[in-house]
Computed example of a mutant assay.
Amino acid sequence: MSASSTKVWTPVRWADNGRIRLAYDRLVKGGDGEPLLLVMGLGASRRWIPDGLCEALAAQGFAVARYDQRDAGESTHLPPTATGNPFAALFGKRGNAYTAEDMADDAIAVLDALGWRSAHLFGQSLGGAIAQRVALRHPGRVRTLTSMSAIPGDAAGLGTLRYLRPGTLAKLARVDYPDTPEGAVEAGVAVARLCASPGHPFDERAARETSERVADTGIHDPQAQSRQIGAQWHGPPITSITVPTLVLHGDGDPLIRPAAARRTAARIPGARLVILPGVGHDLPSPVWKEIATEIRRLADTGSRRPDGDAAPGGEPGGDPGGEAVGRAR
């Protein structure tokens, strides 16, 4: 992990989806590359995505943008709902703040604000599930899909639990710090440590610097997280995804079992599965280059259509077949 710096990003900009205001920015480097939108996980600010990974993606020819999901970072936070425990929300005590379709549409609002007719998507954790749903709901806007450290986007309720590690869930539920700026920093470091890769050293300094930069306490805001988890998906199954897809997962993920990635890759037609040795539920610096290279490979594979047609946005499109389903490397 590396601290996220405002020096390499444009000033914050805003996209609107109805009453929801979404904060986003763009990496200064690589502005003329292929559009790539990054989607972060549960309750987390976009600033938790390491600058080093974003720069590695820019070096691979991508124009990188990132945004805060609703109920995270600088984006709109909704009023409290009846369910204030994010893990209780998994058991159906959900409230009705918004739907998963609403969250998918948020990503499209950001693309519209960026002026991008279509883009590659990379989502991590909950962001991976959201990216899958965007590909289902708005396939013409998605060039390729990369889902990392995520459950299948159509998993719901108790069906989600088979993919989660209860021991880590219990530890996360016990992360309790004062509702102060200092408490938010300590909570951020604690959550980062719980999600860290077992095969790579935990960079506490970078985690602390990043935690100090985030816009709010979303990473330990149970109300906001419960609303995100409680957003139910009513759309088609992930077997309907047609865009070229890459599924990444760490074999040491302490929160989501690699079985989730295997199931996702097996069910999305033509998806390719890459298991990252020693990686947890985070984005450690030793694998930034590998992740960026895999996403570049996906984009290049997706650009070769047998009929020579162009994909949405005027860029070459992708044959959703081609790779063996669920092939792990």
Rank of each mutant, 00 (worst) to 15 (best):
K7Y: 00
W9Q: 12
Y24L: 07
R26C: 15
G30L: 04
D32R: 14
L36P: 00
M40E: 10
S45P: 13
S45V: 07
R46Q: 13
R47L: 15
D51T: 06
L57G: 06
A58C: 02
V64C: 08
V64A: 04
R66T: 11
D68R: 11
D71M: 00
A72T: 15
A82H: 08
G84P: 01
L90W: 06
F91R: 12
G92H: 09
T99L: 05
D105N: 14
V110C: 10
L111Q: 02
D112C: 01
A113M: 10
S118K: 12
H120L: 05
F122T: 07
G123Q: 05
G127D: 03
R133G: 11
G140V: 01
R141Y: 09
T146R: 07
A150Y: 09
A150P: 08
I151M: 15
I151P: 04
P152N: 04
D154A: 05
R162I: 08
L169M: 15
L169T: 04
K171S: 13
L172W: 01
R174I: 00
V175H: 07
V175L: 09
P178C: 05
T180R: 01
P181T: 12
G183V: 05
V191L: 04
L194D: 09
C195K: 02
G199M: 06
G199K: 02
P201E: 08
A206E: 11
R208Y: 08
I219W: 06
H220A: 14
H220K: 06
D221A: 12
A224P: 03
S226Y: 02
R227T: 07
Q228T: 01
I229A: 03
G230F: 01
G230W: 04
G235K: 02
P236A: 15
S240T: 14
I241A: 03
V247D: 02
G250P: 08
D253K: 01
R257G: 00
R262I: 02
R263K: 12
A266Y: 00
I268Q: 09
G270F: 11
G270E: 07
A271T: 05
G278D: 13
G278T: 13
G280W: 07
D282P: 05
L283T: 12
E290C: 00
R297K: 12
L298R: 11
A299C: 10
P306C: 09
G308E: 10
A310E: 11
E315M: 13
P316S: 14
P316N: 06
G317F: 10
G326A: 15
R327C: 08
A328N: 14
R329I: 10
R329V: 12
